[in-house]
Amino acid sequence: MSSDNNYTPPKVWTWNSENGGEWASINRPTAGARHEQELPKGEHPFQLYSLATPNGQKVTIMLEELLAMGHNNAEYDAHLIKIGDGDQFGSDFVDINPNSKIPALLDYSDDLDDKPQRVFESGAILLYLSEKFDALLPKDHSKRTEAMSWLFWQMGSAPYIGGGFGHFYKYAPFPIEYAIDRFTMEAKRQLDVLDKHLANNEFMAGDEYSIADIAIWPWYGNLVLGHAYDAVEFLDATSYKNVLRWAKQIESREAVQRGRIVNRTWGEPHEQLSERHSRADIDQKLKDN
């Protein structure tokens, strides 16, 4: 690896397995299963295989919101996928998500035991659950369209936050000024997009909480609240007053507090629940806080 400003890309790129910083041991330029690994299965209709990264939090928050609304058929088992150990490259996981990224969901409801419905990509999972339970997506056509626009905005924008800003600010093996400047500018631009929108809207789709908020909060809410990358001061995150108001409002929801700790294996002890198999698992963890 070189930090030389005179680096010139070769005519044909070749993979250097030692070049990749914290994730060098698992990142490769190829797809597919790397080993045989059977996934566990619990007793509930939904089997989630995940980790409490922002993308993972989206789905556990969604499921907890559905349960809070009285949709008891949304009960789920949340199994831990240890991405640092390469669980996402196991044969069973790749069968659910050929892209080897968390979260991945199997739906065994509606007599699907023989062939459960697989769902991968966090945005697709949110939309799938929303449509299945007819919940958390506005009925009004205009508001629904607004929610969908912001959902897809998040899916397209967040890689600049995680793989861009977060990676080069927090995880890269050494600081690269150009990369940090480039992605910090984009992170702040996106926060400004949100701040201007939320100046005139309580939630992302107007006055109605929806899957758009559930998708955006784990990335941008956690960022401005200081739960990601330790970058509040660096980004001057508190200057985005409307985003901060919205982030605190979402964080105060009981389902968000419940969902954000599922499949979490870092932080304070009361924030960690490696697996979830019943409501009581979260109840006990929050009681212990």
Rank of each mutant, 00 (worst) to 15 (best):
S3T: 10
T8L: 10
V12Y: 09
I26N: 08
H35T: 07
P40N: 14
K41G: 02
Y49V: 13
S50L: 05
A52F: 01
N55W: 00
M62R: 11
L66P: 05
M69R: 14
H71K: 13
I81L: 13
K82P: 00
G86Q: 04
G86C: 05
I96F: 02
P98F: 07
L105V: 07
P116K: 07
R118Q: 08
F120C: 03
G123D: 04
I125V: 11
I125S: 04
S130K: 07
S130P: 06
P138G: 05
L151Y: 02
F152R: 03
S157W: 01
A158T: 15
P159Y: 08
P159Q: 08
Y160K: 05
G164A: 09
K170H: 14
Y171G: 01
E177F: 12
Y178H: 12
I180L: 04
D181F: 11
D181N: 15
M185C: 02
M185L: 06
Q190V: 13
N200C: 00
F203K: 08
G206Y: 08
E208M: 11
D213Q: 11
L225E: 11
H227Y: 15
A228C: 02
Y229Q: 05
F234A: 12
S239D: 11
L244E: 14
I250R: 04
R260P: 00
N263A: 14
G267V: 08
L273M: 07
R279Q: 05
A280Q: 14
K285L: 10
